[in-house]
């Protein structure tokens, strides 16, 4: 019973802050609403018996990626640029298509009925189990992701440099 109350409360919080992300005109308020939405999602992950994933969600998403977003918004001073309003045609089509998409998804989810009953044994999802899986079965994707992150770091540094001319000779 408590779980249902917690679920509904945090589901409403998630949806409200997600709506604020797309509707508010100030990107800083949008970024902070997204942080709140991610935090509420982390509570959802705890309800799904995956506390390790919840902690990771807060550390990685809410604690690192969104800080990066906020840095970029604040350093580029983006809140002072008035965003030109979207053309009404695009706005109408956008809302209409996304609402149609949402209704289609909901229709099919409800039509599939209540998914089969949950197993009654607890889900072993702690750090030890995930660590074993990562280092035994998924070791290759793990190493590949670390190379991918290295490529992302190098790419981000190169992309955000001011134009470095290639034919500079040291004097």
């Amino acid at each position: 019973m408590f779980e249902l109350i917690i679920f509904f409360f945090f589901a409403v919080v998630t949806i409200v802050f997600a709506l604020m992300v797309i509707l508010h005109r100030n990107p800083v308020v949008g970024a902070l609403s997204l942080v709140a939405s991610f935090f509420a999602l982390a509570v959802m992950y705890i309800l799904l018996e995956a506390p390790f994933m919840a902690a990771l969600q807060v550390i990685v998403y809410a604690g690192a990626i969104m800080v990066l977003f906020l840095f970029v918004i604040m350093l580029l001073n983006l809140q002072h640029q008035a965003e030109p309003p979207t053309r009404p045609v695009q706005q109408f089509l956008g809302f209409f298509l996304s609402i149609a998409f949402c209704l289609t998804l909901l229709f099919y989810i409800v039509k599939a009925g209540t998914i089969a009953a949950l197993p009654s044994t607890p889900f072993v999802s702690d750090a030890r189990a995930i660590g074993y899986a990562l280092f035994e079965k998924y070791i290759f994707p793990f190493e590949m992701v670390s190379i991918l992150l290295l490529a992302a770091i190098v790419g981000a540094i190169v992309l955000s440099q001011r134009g470095v001319s290639l034919d500079r000779r040291p004097d």
């Binding site: 935090f39 919840a54 550390i59 604690g63 800080v67 702690d126 750090a127």
Partner: peptide
Amino acid sequence: NIGLLLIFALASLSVYGITTAGW
């Protein structure tokens, strides 16, 4: 179960107070 990770997760939120205050 995730003791120390919870501390790191919540401590990484302390950045927001300072950033928001500054902005």
